[in-house]
Design a binder for these strands. Structure first.
Length: 450
DNA sequence: AAAGCGGACAACCGCAGTCTT
DNA sequence: AAAGACTGCGGTTGTCCGCTT
């Protein structure tokens, strides 16, 4: 394997990107698509290597990026995902629309790790530090849990747990009533109960938690105050192993994850029939997910490739996501995770108020004004590309969905943009800068322009 | 006011897997 | 089948900025 040829080239700029470079790259990609990245810098007139251009586009210029600080919900989601996926940042990022793997990785290393340690949780194992220390004293560890097939390990653990019929932590708590939003139990435990079959999620249950009213959109969130449920407390273990079906699941029972994925317009390998869904989400599938709501549940079935490792637990076959992660065309080819695909009204109607912003802006009923209102109410720090698109700067209406399709499904042309409006792009940052909406680099741009 | 420090973020590096020839 | 080209990913480093002393 040779190194990337561009690594040997001289006279290539390195370091931070200037606004001019950004604009060149933006202009080029929106007009022609990126095609072969190695040819992009030449065609765009940039003294950069293709790799650098790609990175800049993916991590910064991509129009569907959601800038601003991470919400507590996002952080919570990252933690849960990390417990399952380890340091597979790209897969974690796939669950967080508008966030990049780099962004999440930085957040993890600089912030979340610290928070977890402060809470007495080992960020690598997601177990109490005291427990980890004890284990370390007895058994040599693998250091990072990210390596190898973490999911298989978890599932093996689940098998063990299931065989022993250990009561899970949640079972010690009184039954949860639908609609109960005890701040102590929080969202995670509710999901536990769904998976645990001790709680049947009705349509009302989901509506109550996800309908985009101001109140519910905040109160239903699994915020920090509601508590973070580390892996050993969440029933990723026995309940999940017992009740999911023979599909290659990411071992995360949180329907929020699945629904989050719904706004990913990925090409799926195969469709996920209702009976399978019914097994994975027993009550939910019948009450919430029928096509009347516009949900088209899809899941990647296990790859035919026999080399992909699998394990049978209690008669249930699991596939190692890690070993099949490259089965697709790259971007978001999380072939082992359930994905739901919205095909119309369900998300467009704003049923899920958080983590699905990209879906919401698809609604034909959602005017830019309304959208802006929602974001002001919810996450004031987040200004969305769609808002900019909807503004007068862009004469061509472009939906975020369109952008997602380009970015995630391998369609590389992006000429839906109004190229003439590109020059306004950095100018717009100037206008937005006052409200501290964009990242500091935009502010730098502004300062340089003044 | 200036230096030091740490956090946050952007970008680079190198490896591994896939694709193409 | 082999070698090179290309892409994607995760780890690491570099840079900027704000806060503290």
């Amino acid at each position: 394997m040779g190194r990337h040829s561009c690594c040997y080239k001289q006279k290539l700029r390195k370091g931070l990107w200037s606004p001019e470079e950004d604009e060149k790259l933006m202009r080029h990609i929106t007009q022609y698509g990126h095609g072969c990245w190695s040819s992009v810098p030449k065609q765009a007139g940039l003294q950069r290597c293709g790799k650098s251009c790609r990175l800049r586009w993916i991590n910064y210029l991509r129009p569907d990026l959601k800038r601003g600080t991470f919400s507590p919900q996002e952080e919570s989601l990252i933690i849960e995902l990390h417990a399952v996926l380890g340091n597979r940042w790209s897969q974690i990022a796939a669950q967080l629309p508008g966030r990049t793997d780099n962004e999440i990785k930085n957040l993890w290393n600089s912030c979340i790790k610290k928070k977890l340690r402060q809470r007495g949780i080992d960020p690598n194992t997601h177990k109490p530090l005291s427990e980890v220390e004890n284990v370390e004293n007895k058994v040599p560890t693998n250091n990072e849990n990210a390596s190898g097939s973490n999911e298989l390990k978890l599932l093996m653990a689940a098998s063990t747990s299931s065989e022993n019929s250990k009561p899970v932590v949640e079972e010690q708590k009184p039954p949860l009533m639908v609609g109960d939003r005890s701040p102590v139990e929080g969202f995670g435990s509710t999901i536990n109960r769904i998976v645990n079959n001790s709680l049947t999620p009705t349509k009302d249950f989901f509506l109550e938690r996800f309908v985009a009213s101001d109140e519910s959109s905040t109160s239903c969130r699994p915020s920090d105050s509601m508590g973070y449920f580390p892996l050993h407390q969440l029933n990723y273990s026995s309940n999940f192993a017992n009740q999911t079906t023979s599909i290659g699941l990411s071992a995360n029972p949180n329907p929020v994850l699945w629904l989050n994925q719904s706004c990913r317009p990925f090409e799926m390998n195969s469709e996920f029939n209702s009976s399978t869904m019914s097994t994975a989400m027993p009550s939910l599938s019948s009450s919430i997910l029928p096509t009347s709501l516009g949900i088209k549940p899809i899941v990647n079935l296990p790859p035919a490739n026999p080399s992909i490792s699998s394990v049978n637990i209690n008669g249930i076959q699991f596939w190692d996501a890690g070993s099949s992660s490259n089965s697709g065309s790259g971007s978001g080819s999380g072939s082992s995770s359930i994905e739901l695909q919205s095909n119309n009204s369900f998300f467009e109607n704003g049923v899920f108020p958080w983590g699905l912003a990209d879906c919401r802006v698809e609604s034909s009923e959602l005017t830019p004004d309304k959208e802006a209102q929602i974001h002001l109410q919810g996450q004031s720090e987040d200004i969305k590309w769609s808002e900019y698109v909807h503004s007068s700067h862009f004469s061509t209406p472009v939906t975020v969905q369109n952008q997602n399709q380009h970015l995630y499904s391998g369609i590389k042309t992006e000429n839906q943009f109004d190229i003439n409006s590109l020059s306004n792009w950095h100018q717009s940052q100037q206008q937005l800068q006052a409200s501290d909406i964009y990242g500091k680099d935009f502010q730098r741009v502004v300062l340089e322009q003044i």
